[in-house]
């Protein structure tokens, strides 16, 4: 069974962390992943940096720009992750925009992910319809779970469709926004969280975008299976370096 599915089975609320590969330094990738696992994090999204990250706010944009300046490429990331399964056992997901994956070759990319032990992919600008028509079979051949996003504006019918073609979790974008732009969740968000929870979907939901502290984490996981933290973590390593990750992870009561 895919590590993501296994992880989703228990009662535990999941803490998932996103970071940009190649930031702050090119060679930090493996250390960050190992420190995150040691700190009790349940799942990791490894960001493949892109020059034009449309769905990201200033924090992740800046980390991506820096990672590319540091020399990160798809090839280098795969080299860095080559032996990751010797030391790390939690689910690993690669999150990246579609163009670098398209240039690498979708099938070659999926194959490499399987060799390394990557469990899933999140590709924000690969539309559900295109995935379903052109790439689903390839992802399945290589045992990769593709994670889809929903937002407060996604129609009920479309959520049901996304649920029907998903087989891991649904990535619930907390609000109409790019990454990193919330300071707390108000009534519209909790109404949306409640509405989705009440839909009784086949796939569990994990909430991301704007989760920055224990308060927002607790609010989100009241309704969902887990939460994803990105910008707040990047800010933490920008200010404190990559060794002090347990302090960051400990603030979340997962």
């Amino acid at each position: 069974m895919n590590r993501i599915n296994k992880k989703l089975q228990g009662d535990k609320k999941l803490l998932s962390i996103y970071f940009t590969a190649g930031y702050p330094s090119l060679t930090d990738t493996v250390t960050i992943i190992q420190n995150l696992e040691k700190s009790g994090v349940d799942m990791i999204e490894i960001g493949l940096p892109f020059s034009d990250p449309l769905a990201d706010g200033p924090t992740i944009q800046a980390s991506s720009t820096q990672a590319l300046k540091n020399g990160m490429t798809t090839e280098i990331l795969f080299k860095q992750l080559k032996d990751i399964r010797k030391t790390v056992s939690i689910p690993l997901i690669i999150m990246g925009y579609f163009n670098p994956i398209l240039q690498y070759g979708v099938e070659a990319f999926c194959k490499k992910c399987q060799e390394i032990g990557i469990d899933g992919l999140i590709i924000p600008d690969l539309p559900v319809g295109v995935y379903n028509d052109e790439y689903k079979a390839t992802f399945e051949t290589y045992g990769l779970i593709n994670i889809f996003l929903i937002t407060p504006q996604t129609s009920e019918a479309r959520i049901h469709f996304i649920d029907s073609i998903s087989n891991g979790f649904i990535y619930m974008v907390s609000s109409a926004s790019v990454t990193g732009s919330q300071s707390g969740f108000g009534d519209p968000q909790t109404a949306y969280f409640e509405r989705i929870a009440a839909m009784d979907l086949k796939n569990p939901q994990i909430i991301g975008f704007g989760i920055s502290d224990n308060k927002t984490f607790t609010q989100a996981t009241k309704y969902a299976k887990g939460a994803i933290i990105g910008s707040a973590f990047i800010k933490h390593i920008t200010n404190n370096g990559i060794e002090d990750i347990p302090t960051f992870a400990r603030q979340f009561n997962n």
Binding site: S51, D52, T73, T74, E75, Y97, N99, Q103
Partner: peptide
Amino acid sequence: GKEGIIHGCKTLLMQTPDGQIT
């Protein structure tokens, strides 16, 4: 340019071999 994706469409696009837009 080479086939790629920019601003929501698949088209010819100036990019690095790694798919970063130049």
